[in-house]
Amino acid sequence: MGKAWESGADAIVMDDRDHVATALRELSPGLTITFKHAGETVQLEVMEAIAFGHKIAVAAIEVGVHVRKYGEVIGRATAVIPKGCHVHVHNIEGIRGRGDQAAAPAAAKGE
């Protein structure tokens, strides 16, 4: 998981397959940020405030989609998440360790 960090980048995408970037500073709505994704420098308009360390959608995410960071599944979208919006507990949920769900799914092997 060793990535080269670029000096002064606004955000970082950990893997080419990721749906999210992590903000490396406070991001305000309306700002256009620049970061590397799949080997290319891309720009993205920030749609809502994203705190340092929080995630921003780098593509539109449909309900039920398995959301990826580090190239791996970090949870499931519980709402439509437009590109540039904040991705967090209000619109994604964990799939594992869900004692609140009657028939909790067995551990996924290499989802």
Binding site: I74, E93, R96, R98
Partner: peptide, 26 residues
């Protein structure tokens, strides 16, 4: 699962969540 609750809130903890971590998987 026996506890009958979502582990989120216990782990990731409130502090983890404030720091940007959304799920135990992440």
């Amino acid at each position: 699962e026996k506890v009958g609750a979502d582990m989120r809130g216990g782990n990731p903890s409130p502090g983890n969540i404030a720091g940007g971590l959304s799920t135990i998987e992440e």
